[in-house]
Amino acid sequence: MYSVIKYSIIENLRSKFYLASIGMILFIIWLSHYSSQINYNYGNYTLSILTLGMYFTKLILFAFIIFLPVSNLSQEIETGTIYFLLSKKLKRYKYLAAKYITYMILYAALLFFAVFSLWLLTYVFVSKRPEMSLKLLYFMYSEFLSGMMILSIVFFIYTAIKAQVVTSILTAITYFISIMLNSAKEIAEKAQDASVRCFYLFLYYIFPNFSYFNLEKNIVYGRAVDIKYFFMMFCYAAIFSLILFIISAVFFNSREL
């Protein structure tokens, strides 16, 4: 399992997709710097660059986590690498776990790179307020947990339907529906019909809610977040990811490769 992680990381670090992601992150950091200069008014640079930078970073990270794992897994099945690995008495769930850990490490590295670049640009070269830089750790933490959940959704969908492109699309749809989840709760509260109410409440509670990981306001306005909130965020992401991973492992174990 350790070897799978090690070689997967080495292989992926050299992949065009990963390098392109790094290039894209550098580009978006520059882009947010450029757009912030235009948007600059009344000493508002830090706020502007942070919000745009975080948004674009999130976009790249999201694209990375929904495309790379699926494309790699499909490639390993197509080229037969997976058969070679599984023939070495490596259990399927361990293989899946190794892949999960690999992508989370790659994701974390990319996230760290993005946050570091943003911090460097905003606080060292422009704002010169290093004490504020700690708030960017909030972004790193919340994005890591969010990535953990998205990856588990990707694994879940991929192991269930075995289709590469559809998996990415469905994950993206799931993510965007999750953003609108509060509307589901509003509908449930207003609905007259009990079945409609149950359906929307079920949707509200079963669906992942990525809004909880949105700490941008606290980051850009330098507001502290309660430690309990961080803990609950972790619990939510960990439980959700673990359950989805277990279901994925069951699917993966029983399916034909």
Partner: peptide, 25 residues
């Protein structure tokens, strides 16, 4: 405001900055 949730992946402040950017431009 509803659409910004989707387009900006729930990043309200980024959406706000974007519309401010439009106004400036």
């Amino acid at each position: 405001m509803q659409m910004s949730k989707l387009f900006f992946m729930n990043q309200h402040i980024a959406a706000s900055q974007y519309y401010q950017f439009l106004a400036v431009v």
